[in-house]
Design a binder for these strands. Structure first.
Lengths: 207, 207
DNA sequence: TAAAATTCTACCTAAACGGGTAGTTTTTAG
DNA sequence: CTAAAAACTACCCGTTTAGGTAGAATTTTA
């Protein structure tokens, strides 16, 4: 039995969904709130498996709310609900911890389907958002500064807090040898010092 | 007209898809290869809108191949093709630049649908992979070291290569005031110097 | 209001860093 | 094979960083 909470300011929306969801024998709506504030006062969220969270709410928005929810109840699944599809807000909500999202115009069958997918560890979302999400986590391909293997190694060492001396020992080079490479790293990354180099180059070094 | 190239070692698979796709008046298969090596020798990929790329290939795998493809032709859309769904390899391919993926057992209608979605800027994928992708880019919620606003500001300054002096001027504090905060940053992040602090804390500072 | 914690300033010292220059060895390219 | 480029070593020198300690100013807490 999947226990659902709904946070949604529109009364008809809330009750419509409740009616639809309670028709399914594996789903049970255990609580409904018209705002994040209300939901946080109650303790029902603790008993919830999955929350349907409207993205646009008066007061604390869903985008902010999901952050709090995930902090307090990391295991609960949060699906954002939104009017429009290709939306920067959806993206932000996902960054803040949402597990997926669905559109308000979804059919009852799709709603139940999305909930079941999410409950089993999936993330329902449209392809458009999926593309955005993917792009944001891909290694940036174009401006890939070509650091040599040694340079990457040294940059990694710097990121780990090693001194030039420690680095020299680690890769069997003189301190000035290390310095030679570091100078080249700074030039390539246009960095003034090791911190800036690490900040700029950390995405280019292998984990 | 969407121009498609197929890289797939199984002959029947290749030709089956070609037959299916060419039935659609908006899709045209312009080239087929049985390996990445072959594809890279030819110049057909340059004229391609979308590539169907088998994830498991002899020689250069699709996971590696997509990297090369995206380097050479950043604008081409790459869809990975895979046997199994919940797969670490799919995940790696997406990290390397793939725009989506579909299963080999996909129906002709779904195949055409996925291609059209991808061509219009979407990313077809199953909810399971979507969840993985989302998780990998969410801000890590639990181990969020609580840096104060000033500490974040200073860490950001360090990441930008500022010296203590420059930082002091920027935030109207004495150099020793800056040092005071930096010491606290090092303690909280367990860092020995600014590079390590930047490496460890860069995810916690606001962009 | 008093005590405690946090924030900020100050100074000392040693170590680490960064720029410049210059020379040697090794690799690469013609 | 020879010239050019890259990789490495070396030294000088001034600046920056990091650790330690200590005390004032400010805010928080009881």
């Amino acid at each position: 039995m999947i226990k659902i909470s709904i946070i949604e300011d529109n009364k008809y929306m809330r009750e419509g969904w409740q009616a639809v969801l309670d028709l399914d024998s594996n789903i049970c709506v255990i609580a409904m709130f018209e705002s994040c504030e209300d939901a946080f006062k109650s303790d029902d969220l603790a008993k919830t498996d999955l929350i349907l969270l409207d993205i646009q709410l008066p007061g604390i928005s869903g985008i902010e709310g999901v952050k709090t929810i995930k902090q307090r109840y990391p295991d609960v699944v949060v699906l954002m609900v939104t009017m429009h599809d290709d939306n920067e807000r959806v993206f932000e909500a996902l960054r803040n911890g949402a597990d997926g999202y669905l559109l308000k115009k979804v059919t009852p069958a799709e709603l139940v389907e999305a909930i079941k997918i999410a409950n089993e560890g999936g993330s329902p979302m449209t392809p458009n958002i999926a593309r955005k999400v993917i792009q944001s986590f891909q290694k940036t391909p174009q401006n890939d500064v070509d650091l040599t293997a040694v340079e990457k190694l040294i940059l990694k060492g710097l990121a780990n807090g090693l001194s030039y001396k420690a680095l020299a020992e680690e890769i069997h080079l003189s301190i000035d040898g290390v310095r030679y490479h570091i100078r080249n790293i700074y030039r390539k990354l246009e960095a003034k010092n090791s911190s800036e180099a690490v900040a700029k180059g950390i995405d280019y070094i292998d984990p």
